[in-house]
């Protein structure tokens, strides 16, 4: 028993050769955000507040693909989405298609608390943001030069693929991967449990580079990218389409509930059940356990527990 917290900054084909100037800022950001979460838990803040706070911080950091730093859709816009869920009550809120809201996760929380709905999207979500008076900015705030470059690369890669490889039905069902980069990465998430066993989860993303306008991924879908109940809290990241069809976050909880698996076994099973290279997740249990499995090359992640354990990592650690 005791509190525990984990956060992620995306899973995917993170090359082992990732240059230090791109690795270091992310590690620093993970450390900084972990610290904020740990302090909030120690101060006795409600877990729902803690996950929101940490994800806001991750959104504000341009190193990750959420909030500022979100990747661009095929027409060069950002379309952000986010989701939050409280384990005890299973209350939840989600948003998609945001273009001006600084902190998508906080709007998701307002949908949960101030509307009779769970999920608002696009113009309706933007109108709700204005009605609630949350901070909004011009879309250009979210767009970084790196992401303009990534979009150009992605468009180039797609064109090449179309020129030389006739699309097969299999290709149509997979998100196109972009070589030599971490450009699809960076969805952020946080899960936390306090020392009374209250659980919460939050996930936020810009989606993936060169996505079709209007595309919704796994992040805002309860049971896919985000899920919490009275047993565990889960935030997943990776290829959205695989996570949706695998109902990955709910499956961790379902395996604990219906099959009696431990958190670690349930999370490992859920990640193994989706195609290799497509998913990672972070999860905490009501009893203060934490696990962060992934079947991609790497996952930007960090965790800490009350008994003093702490970890910040990108690639599989040696003991795994």
């Amino acid at each position: 028993m005791g509190w525990a917290i984990a956060l992620h900054g995306g899973a995917g084909e993170i090359p082992l050769s990732l240059p230090v100037e791109r690795r270091k800022p992310r590690e620093d950001a993970l450390r900084h955000c972990l610290q904020i979460g740990v302090e909030a838990l120690k101060a006795g803040n409600p877990v729902l507040d803690v996950v929101e706070l940490v994800v806001r911080e991750l959104e504000n950091n341009p190193q990750f693909n959420a909030g500022k730093g979100s990747v661009l859709s095929c027409n060069g816009d950002v379309e952000m989405e986010a989701c939050i869920m409280d384990g005890k009550t299973k209350k939840c809120g989600a948003v998609s298609g945001l273009k001006t809201v600084v902190n998508a996760i906080s709007l998701a929380r307002l949908v949960m608390e101030k509307t009779p709905h769970i999920y608002l999207a696009f113009d309706g979500a933007e109108a709700f943001a204005r009605e609630q008076g949350v901070e909004t900015v011009d879309s250009s705030y979210f767009v970084t030069p790196e992401n303009i470059e990534r979009l150009n690369q992605a468009k180039e890669a797609n064109r090449t693929q179309l020129d030389y490889t006739p699309p097969t039905p299999k290709d149509l069902n997979n998100e196109k991967s972009i070589p030599n980069g971490d450009s699809q990465l960076g969805t952020v998430g946080c899960v936390a449990v306090d020392n009374e066993g209250n659980l919460a989860t939050a996930t936020s993303t810009g989606g993936f580079v060169n996505k079709m306008v209007g595309r919704i991924g796994d992040t805002p879908i309860i049971g896919a990218g985000t899920y919490a109940n009275n047993l565990c809290a889960v935030s997943a990241t990776g290829k959205g389409e695989a996570i949706i069809r695998g109902t990955v976050a709910r499956d961790v909880a379902a395996l604990m509930e219906f099959k009696g698996l431990s958190l670690k076994d349930a999370a490992a099973y859920a990640v193994d059940s989706v195609p290799k290279g497509t998913a990672g997740l972070i999860a905490v249990s009501a009893t203060g356990e934490v696990t962060m499995p992934f079947n991609t090359l790497g996952m930007f992640r960090a965790c800490a527990t009350e008994d003093g354990y702490s970890e910040i990592g990108i690639w599989p650690s040696i003991k795994n």
């Binding site: 998609s96 696009f122 998100e175 209007g214 595309r215 389409e241």
Partner: peptide, 15 residues
Amino acid sequence: EKSPHSYLAFSGAED
């Protein structure tokens, strides 16, 4: 069957 995605919404879906 015809998109790389699972879910499209609002104006993007109309397009």
